[in-house]
Design a binder for these strands. Structure first.
Lengths: 198, 198, 198, 198
DNA sequence: TATGAATGAGCCTTCATTCAT
DNA sequence: GATGAATGAAGGCTCATTCAT
């Protein structure tokens, strides 16, 4: 009977919040700025979220959720370990293009003092890393001494960091191509065979 | 005459600012809190810095400067590439203990959106990475295809990230020891030999 | 046709508003809270009242109206002055039990700075007080020097204040009984004979 | 070395707060309005009080403290019970002229939903009332059945209510004089002899 | 008729910065 | 030089009110 919630508005709020957090940091993403960018009334986002903190937490959760889903999808495919790494990096490359905002957003918040990936999502991530670790060891593609955190760093942090360095032009390089992809896969898989070659 | 006193106060201000930024985030480190911790009047730091932003920028610059110096020092020693990596990581491990504040401070600010490593320091870092790259290639310890940014990521970002994961207890691991050191050196040097082993 | 439904809803709104004003204060009684408690849409009450202020004013008017009615009823009975006082206090005691809400509501709003008993109701109250005054003087139950406001204070403000002190547990007393009633009547009627006994 | 706190500013803040609470109610006394009236920067009062609530609580406490002091002073004088009542009312009459704001302020807040006289001050008030009660009974000026709360209502609430009615022109009467004083003393003392005369 | 989505003014509060002393 | 009193812009958030449906 009343007019229905305009989902587009909520979507614009989320989008605006993400963009502003990415471009100005959490502090720079003021409620007023978000509302203005979303072309929405100042206090409107409080219809959906009880606080700015929780809005951003929810967005982080969504972005991480997206990543976890893709990760789990890849992990369930019946492919070799090397292919897994390749597909994973390829997926991240694509995300960095098609969901650039999500990648940047995660990058910014994973390192922000006020935020943390929630403990249940951390558990999920850890579980995937553990499965990958097992698979890698079974295929002899991975040194016995490695731990989940090594997987996490090399398969997630490493590519995301590199992509962000490129996006920020940290070393006068920007963009990426198939060569980068191959090189990174090589570097990564080589790292996992560490002790074998010492 | 009054100089020594001033310097001590300035030093206290810097220390207080670092500690508060590390422990409370940039937003949580209010001028009033910094001044109180430094036992100095609220407005006093404006004798040295025109704004809070510039104070913190200066501190970041100092911390990065310290890191660059150590990096250059290591690079000038007449040692093998593997030893270089070992010494570098060892140095970072020690910094993480003895200058935990600097490590954390850099970590917090390198990813904060309001701050950036200055372009001249970025150039310096790049230069050191380039030298290390050259050395590594000369010694056949490094694949031809590698680039300065790979050096940077594997030699700087990787260990700092891991140390921070441990400090933040991301995967229920905290602290680090010599085993970690060896493992990391192995992983890192192996990664640099990537294509060789494919 | 739809009228009965409307009336029920309006009644629920009024009741909810009263309860919330009494329990949370004017500020705490938000339109949203009132609407929710009344199980009615947020904007619905604007069909009946142009503003929250006017809604509450109307409720105050009703409560005062109820009181005035009872007052006038008592005054028209053919009883002695002392009986009048007794019946009046008894009536207030009962109201405080059966229409606790109205008593509290009046108490809260009569002293709230945003509200005032309307001047016509003030006139009515004054008229009743004047009649009681006349009756009292005729029966020699009341000193010549007394004025309508003395009637008002002793017959209305005094018992309501006492009831509220009891309800608020101001002096570790709560509740009231027939003893209190008799005592109050005594105190009140005695006060009206003031100069006689000096 | 720094400029000293301008006590006049703090005083202006208190005064402005009191005036606005009295004239607009707690809700109407916005921080911005208080600051403007006090000719002081918006957030300045937070140097002295941690919140608006606590500012007003402090002011209430001061006003009540003033009243309690005067009450205790009167109670310690070696005078008859009737003189005590007379002096007390006279004192309130004077307060209502010279500290009109304090009287009004107390009146408004004692009935405001968000405030209460603190429990220690309530204890003090009760103690004074108890002493007066004892004195009155010793002098046979007071019925045995009376309680502290009767003292409080007749000696404090009654005159303050009347003064406020006059100040608000509730019944087209304003101001007060010696006649009122005498009349009120009579009424009050008579009320305390209630059962004697039944 | 009745709903509740949407608005935006205004609230309390914080804090970097200025400047009189 | 050094202090800290004082400022005021901006922040997050609430809520009475409007109006499309």
């Amino acid at each position: 009977m009343a007019r229905p919630i305009d989902q587009a508005k909520l979507e614009r709020i989320k989008q605006a919040a993400k963009e502003l957090v990415v471009n100005m940091g959490y502090g720079g993403a003021s409620i007023a700025a978000i509302a203005k960018k979303a072309e929405v009334a100042d206090g409107y986002l409080y219809r959906f979220y009880p606080s700015k903190q929780l809005l951003v937490e929810d967005l982080l959760r969504s972005s991480v959720h997206l990543l976890i889903n893709k990760l789990e999808g890849l992990n369930n495919e019946n492919i070799s370990f090397r292919e897994l790494v390749y597909n994973l990096f390829e997926m991240l490359f694509e995300m960095a293009k098609e969901q650039e905002l999500d990648i940047k957003f995660m990058y910014v918040l994973m390192n922000d003092y006020n935020f943390q990936v929630s403990s249940d999502q951390r558990t999920q991530i850890r579980a995937v890393c553990a499965q990958i670790l097992t698979k890698g060891k079974q295929e002899n593609a991975m040194d016995k001494s490695l731990h989940e955190e090594d997987i996490f760093i090399m398969l997630i942090v490493y590519p995301i960091t590199l992509l962000n360095m490129r996006m920020k032009n940290f070393f006068d390089k920007s963009g990426w191509n198939t060569n980068d992809l191959t090189k990174m896969v090589n570097l990564c898989t080589a790292s996992f065979l560490s002790t074998k070659n010492q």
